[in-house]
């Protein structure tokens, strides 16, 4: 009785490479006809080498990069056709965790300010903010003592916890995880992976996990897609991944 939460159909993204005047434009096919379905409480992994288009795919789903063609269907609507304002509404339900927690936070803002950004952007009433901040921090294994700190005053693992807290503070349905542990120390990576699994259970999240690390994907994803040169070459259960590794 799984229900499909998000469906990507024939997603395509062409980047026009810079060309001199009067020259015909050249295109680079970063993503070429990618389709996938994400069910509730499911994690799909997308693996591939750098430059295979896996990150672009993730960003197209959130329309951080506008896809050239294709459909992204969420709650019965094709979100690629929504206006910017309507899309911002949807962003409440689809959030993202970035690879490098240090780079994805403004170093001049405190953790409180960083975590409040989604609340302000989506007009959460003032009096609901404080409890939400505290509860979310607790969920990611931190405490309110961290609120007044700056990103550089925390360790890599703690920063990524903040990155995750920022993504789940609005209680989204889907979180796109873009290489969530590859910038972290080995001994901290496993903490973060465990945290992600706990949160999935507790909040009923669905993940799109983008990673180059087969080990990470194998551990946490239910189904796995392999991308190569912009195309999804294989999509299947985790068992198939084992075969890929044999290649």
């Amino acid at each position: 009785m799984t229900t499909t939460l998000l469906e990507v159909r024939n997603l395509e993204k062409k980047f026009s490479s810079k060309s001199a005047w009067f020259q015909s434009k050249k295109y680079v096919h970063a993503v070429n006809g990618v389709s996938l379905e994400l069910n509730e409480r499911e994690t799909i992994g997308i693996v591939g080498e750098s430059g295979c288009g896996k990150s672009t795919t993730g960003r197209c789903v959130l329309r951080l990069i506008e896809p050239t063609s294709g459909e992204v269907i969420f709650q019965g609507k094709d979100i690629t056709t929504l206006s910017k304002r309507e899309m911002n509404e949807i962003r409440k339900d689809i959030q993202m965790v970035f690879q490098d927690p240090m780079a994805s936070m403004n170093p001049k803002l405190t953790i409180r300010e960083i975590l409040s950004e989604p609340l302000i952007a989506h007009k959460v009433p003032q009096k609901e903010r404080e409890p939400l901040l505290n509860e979310t921090l607790r969920l990611v294994g931190l405490s309110e003592n961290h609120l007044e700190r700056y990103p550089h005053e925390m360790s890599g693992g703690q920063r990524q916890r903040i990155g995750i807290a920022r993504a789940i503070i609005l209680r989204p349905k889907i979180v796109v995880l873009d290489e969530p542990v590859s910038a972290l120390d080995v001994s901290v990576q496993s903490q973060i992976l465990n945290l992600l699994q706990d949160l999935q259970e507790e909040l009923g999240l669905s993940y799109i996990l983008i990673s180059h690390d087969l080990g990470v994907v194998e551990h946490i994803a239910h189904r796995v897609g392999v991308m190569y040169l912009g195309e999804m070459v294989e999509m299947g259960g985790k068992e198939q991944l084992f075969l890929i590794r044999k290649h």
């Binding site: 899309m87 970035f98 994805s104």
Partner: peptide, 12 residues
Amino acid sequence: SMFVEASRSIGS
């Protein structure tokens, strides 16, 4: 920078 992209993803 990534933090501006993060802001966009949040919908600010």
